[in-house]
Design a protein around this nucleic acid. Structure first.
Lengths: 337, 337
DNA sequence: ATGAAAGCGCTAACAG
DNA sequence: CTGTTAGCGCTTTCAT
């Protein structure tokens, strides 16, 4: 690898001059600038980012922490993050945590020693104060999707309005004639699932429909538990005429169970999902769902993070936190009537 | 951030001694070792990886290059890579290339300036000599899934035996009574798709079945083109009684088209996929498929890469390339009879 | 406008 | 066994 000194001697100048022309921070005589550029070309010189980072205390690298990239929604988010990172000269390090606090902590620790510039995290942050601590320590941080109510406007967040989205979704179901709407609830420790639940309740109530505990399916052991829960709810004396699921993967399981029971979708019961994961259009029937702009969420998160990084560089402190709320789209396909 | 000097003065020794106890390369008096460890604890000292990398010419970071993490198979592979990387103290940088040679080159360039230790690449390497060049330049490199025949035993590779897997799959179809087996061919510029095609042809021929060009569906514009192709093939005077697809996403599209035509699966036609992507068990009917051990492929690739890195460190040169061939499993679900 | 020198934090000879 | 020194490649005062 050719270094700045080679270039300098080749151009007949000092290393500092080369640095100056490359970083354009200071004025340099046009003719020497030319000479330097020539030498750079000739040697195909690339500055050593490590050395630069060491010197500058900045690595142009950000860390993306997700529970698991195997979970359908995170590849989309990750792609959004990576695209804007790349366009801004940043590199992204991928960390799968499996929602294990120990792994998370170990990763954070490791990232700090690399002088990572900031963190985009989609973690289960309920108890995760080691994540919140990041901002206190001065690290740019943005939370995507997973955070608590108390984090809003305290930390930077990006998400959809889960309450409103669920409310609108259920209202749609009511408007299209459904009267007994079941809910496939997600893990209750996650704020956004609680919000979707609230939206469901509120929409029911505003429509004058009763809330029935028997109609809310509560996940016990992973998404697969909805297979059994679907069977149970459909065997009720008065089974539901629609099932609103708080995520697409749950909808897939529900549809599967329904199919195995010989229940027709949407003739006997409508199924409405949440997320619009890439495969939701491929199942049979194609799933109606509330589309979260996953890619955009990643992109917005990265933009916000990079803004924080630059702001901090300039002002020595983090900008005030901002809450990014993105809109959803109701995609009507063929699983609802 | 506390640095090695703080620790040194706190422990009343020199920086080199601290370095020595932390890296355990050289013997250190037990009592001074104690003192140092104490100081390390007290200050919660973490070595600055950047400085270390700069000094050592190694970053403990590897680069994972994929066309797009949004493509269903790459999250699994990525997870395999990341898990073994983490367990070995490596960090992974994620690069989505969209199979764009320019993006690939830019990434490689950038990675080199970070002194990345090695590359795991799942790229469209047909013409990509900038990838092959990596090994010539001394970079540890392993190719997953995508490579040409001429790369085998020249570069490190990991993949399944696509020919054999396809051969066995078609043989299974024949054994279960299918006589007119269509093939959903993939992009022909990819070696592994050509191999699957070869396996298909050979199995047909060995079973005494004729090869019919009309029965091979050739992708024109992305996976969606199989919707139309399926319609066409099913409208043939003698339609197929089975469709073997060279990837699961193609199978999903095929099934979709079949369903829309009112063709029953598997009663009228069996569908057999390839990959065993996580969603293949969730579609209706659950997809029978040739399971590639995607996670393991990633894990093996990372292991191989790390071995190369260590070998090179020790011997100053790369070890001879190895070809890793992993086994597949035929998963029979309900889309085949 | 440019060069010399110091230093980011660490490791590895080289002495002792 | 341990301290001193040099240097990885870069940026940034401070002189000139």
């Amino acid at each position: 690898m050719t270094n700045i000194k080679h270039v300098a001697t080749l151009a007949g100048v000092s290393a500092s001059t080369v640095s100056r022309v490359l970083n354009g921070k200071s004025y340099v005589n046009e003719t020497t600038r030319q000479k330097v550029m020539e030498a750079v070309q000739k040697t195909n010189y690339r500055p050593n980012v490590l050395a630069k980072s060491l010197k500058m205390g900045r690595s142009n690298t950000i860390c993306l922490m997700v529970p698991s990239i195997q979970n359908l929604i995170f590849p989309e988010i990750a792609r959004g993050v990576e695209d804007v990172a790349r366009r801004n000269g940043f590199t992204v390090v991928l960390c799968n945590t499996d929602e294990d606090a120990a792994v998370e902590k170990a990763y954070i620790d490791k990232m700090k020693t690399r002088w990572i510039d900031g963190f985009v995290v989609c973690s289960n942050i309920g108890e995760a104060d080691h994540i919140r601590a990041l901002r206190v320590e001065g690290f740019p941080l943005v939370l995507v999707n997973r955070f608590e109510e108390r984090d809003i406007n305290v930390l930077d967040t990006v998400a959809v309005d889960s309450f409103q989205a669920a409310y609108d979704a259920v209202q749609y179901l009511v408007r299209t004639g459904h009267r007994r709407i079941a809910l496939a609830y997600g893990r209750e420790e996650l704020y956004f699932y609680r919000e979707r639940y609230r939206g469901y309740c509120q929409a029911l109530s505003d429509a004058g429909l009763p809330y029935e505990e028997a109609l809310v399916m509560r996940e016990s052991s992973g998404v697969d538990s909805f297979y059994r829960l679907t069977q149970e709810v459909m065997r009720l004396p008065q089974p539901p005429d629609a099932i609103f699921t708080t995520s697409d993967p749950k909808a897939f399981v529900v549809m599967h169970a329904l199919h195995d029971m010989g229940v027709r979708i949407p003739e006997d019961v409508s199924v409405l999902g949440f997320d619009n994961v890439s495969l939701s259009s491929m199942v049979e029937p194609p799933l109606s769902t509330v589309a979260q702009p996953l890619y955009d969420m990643g992109a917005v998160a990265a933009k916000n993070l990079i803004h924080q990084i630059r702001y901090k560089e300039k002002n020595g402190e983090l900008p005030p936190p901002v809450r990014n709320v993105l809109g959803v789209d109701l995609i009507v396909r063929r699983s609802t009537r």
